[in-house]
Design a binder for these strands. Structure first.
Length: 570
DNA sequence: GCCGTTTTCGGCCCGACTGTTTTCAGTCG
């Protein structure tokens, strides 16, 4: 069982307890444990084997025992009992805006509603408005909540949301009186998916800002409009919230709305211990405001250095900050090249020269032209003779071109039996060899793990591309034991890719952190098939930052000389 | 249910908004 599965179960327990009207702190304890486990880079199984479950923050005697039961039997009596008490289907109602545990229970008790269908039927018959504490407006809000859920139900890729946010910010800067403007929320933390876009503004004329915002061409529907907060649904199907605050509140609000929620709670708890109250308006000692204009004020007030947004997940960043061991995160400006780009030779859109020109424009010192190997027919995989032709073209270009160095590479398939799709004789001619899986996804975990490990044991392989193979929201990762994979890569000195393609973002952040702990060097690559996609680099850098990676952990921050040293054959 | 540089028991983050209410409960971020 995977960490995510444990987290899901604990979260389900929390939700069930919430519906049962249990002690809210108990509920919170389960939520917290779920959140912590989700963010662990090490597998729960390994931790349990060491007998250290109780050392996980938020996991005490009771939750540890439940995890042990799950590990041992694959079942959990406690959860099964809870499920008996709370009717199935009630949990799904919690996804609807404005329906929380209390309302869900009320709906069930009074009207026997335990599914979305029954709720919609009851709404149509106006049976909700007669319930205690409810009226016509509540009914309408719930109806709207269901619609909204259907429209924007799933989270959106960061790669989709970020350009929308950037467009809004640029429009508001151009056409309305904003003094400061910044995207907040999970977008600012560079989470791989975001639920909505939150934007924070300082302005002397908030009404004007709101008018421009709600009047943007991309706005399909205005969900709410007020002087301090407005909310719209865009034609992209994503909700955008805009908040206007006073200049002296901006820092506190920025911190507050950036989250994560759990990070904020932890920070405020530190504040309480120091006799401070921290909220979105500022930092207060008693009634006296002692800060809040700059974001750093919040951290300073609790005796911490600035913590970058990407780390704010309450995954140990506060402890690290206290002890002065926050990483100095890698930045986009540190990136000196992109080592995984497809050219026209296989399934890319552009010639090598076009890619090189673009890479120069981006200020890169080197670029890796990496195409598919021969068995990838549908993706234009290169035959050995075509690959030789490509290598020759790159050698010729390198003599001609100044300021940038082109690396000849291949993304060579690891076949089902773990062997590589090109023979060693040709692999050793290449500057960079990236191994990858593109077929035979449906193997069991043991076989898949063995297959990949065998693949990267080839002495000519430098890097493993998109190590888990997941496509966010579309395809699950291969069934692979990532822990074992990381250990094998560490042992062999294989580097792991952070594929910056918005749908991949693979290796995911929590594993990056684990890989770093094992001393693995990572490579951030766009896997671009088109010049435009070379801009994806920032998403990969975001993953790296969320994985606590520093410049020294990333191959493509190295100088050309260091790069070649690292790629040299053993 | 968890946790301890105020505590092994008694705390546990903070405020806005909404709709339904005469003082607040529920939900959300």
């Amino acid at each position: 069982m995977e960490n995510l599965e444990f987290a899901r179960i604990l979260r389900e327990i929390a939700e069930l307890l919430e519906i049962k009207n249990e002690n809210p702190f108990k509920v919170r304890a389960y939520y917290r444990a779920a959140q912590v486990i989700e963010g662990l880079s090490e597998s729960i199984n390994t931790i349990a084997e060491r007998g250290e479950l109780r050392k996980i923050p938020g996991v005490g005697e009771s939750i540890a025992e439940k995890i042990e039961e799950l590990l041992k039997t694959g079942r959990l009596k406690y959860l099964e009992e809870l499920k008996k008490e709370v009717p199935e289907g009630l949990l799904s109602l919690l996804e609807i805006q404005d329906i929380g545990p209390k309302t869900a229970l009320l709906l069930y008790k009074e009207l026997g509603i335990n599914s979305m269908e029954k709720l919609e039927k009851a709404l149509a018959e106006h049976r909700l408005r007669d319930l205690p504490g409810m009226g016509e407006k509540t009914e309408e809000n719930i109806r709207r909540g269901i619609e909204l859920l259907k429209e924007t139900g799933t989270r959106m890729l960061l790669g989709t949301a970020l350009p929308v946010a950037e467009e809004i910010i640029s429009e508001l800067k151009k056409n309305s009186p904003v003094e400061k403007i910044e995207a907040t929320g999970s977008l600012r933390r560079f989470r791989e998916t975001v639920g909505d876009i939150d934007i924070l503004v300082v302005s002397k004329n908030s009404e004007k800002v709101m008018d421009v915002f709600t009047g943007l061409a991309m706005v399909r529907e205005v969900l709410a409009k007020g002087p301090t907060r407005s909310s719209v649904l865009t034609t992209y199907g994503i909700q955008v919230d805009l908040r206007v605050v006073k200049p002296d509140q901006f820092g506190a609000a920025l911190h507050y709305f950036t989250g994560s929620k759990n990070h904020n709670i932890a920070i405020r708890e530190l504040g309480v211990k120091k006799g401070l109250k921290i909220n979105e308006y500022g930092i207060f000692r008693g009634k006296k405001k002692i800060g809040g204009e700059e974001e750093i004020d919040v951290f300073k007030s609790v005796g911490l250095p600035y913590i970058p947004p990407e780390l704010r997940e309450n995954r140990g960043e506060i402890e690290a900050a206290k002890e002065g061991r926050l990483p100095v995160l890698v930045e986009c400006a540190d990136i000196k090249g992109d080592l995984h780009i497809h050219s026209k030779y296989s399934d890319g859109e552009n010639t090598i020269e076009e890619i090189v020109r673009k890479a120069k424009q981006m200020g890169y010192e080197y670029v890796g032209i990496v195409d598919h190997s021969r068995s990838m027919r549908f993706a234009g995989g290169l035959s050995i003779s075509d690959l030789k032709k490509k290598i020759n073209e790159i050698r010729r270009l390198n003599e001609k071109i100044k300021d940038i160095t082109i690396l000849a590479g291949a993304e060579v398939d690891i076949k089902v039996d773990g062997s590589l799709d090109y023979p060693d004789e040709i692999l050793k001619e290449l500057d960079i060899v990236i191994a990858a899986i593109h077929s035979g996804f449906k193997m069991d975990q043991e076989k898949m793990t063995e297959r990949i490990i065998k693949g990267i044991e080839n002495e000519y392989v430098h890097i493993l591309a998109h190590p888990t193979g997941r496509l966010i929201g579309k395809r699950d990762p291969y069934r692979v034991d990532v822990e074992r994979l990381i250990m094998a890569a560490a042992k062999r000195g294989i580097m792991l890719e952070i594929n910056a393609y918005p749908e991949r973002l693979d290796l995911p952040d929590i594993y990056c952190r684990r890989a770093k702990d094992e001393g693995i060097i990572m490579v951030i690559s766009t896997d671009a098939h088109h010049l435009d996609q070379m801009r994806f680099m920032k998403f990969g850098v975001g993953v790296a930052r969320r994985g606590w990676l520093e410049k020294k952990n990333i191959l493509n921050t190295f100088s050309l000389k260091e790069l070649f040293k690292k790629l040299k054959r053993i």
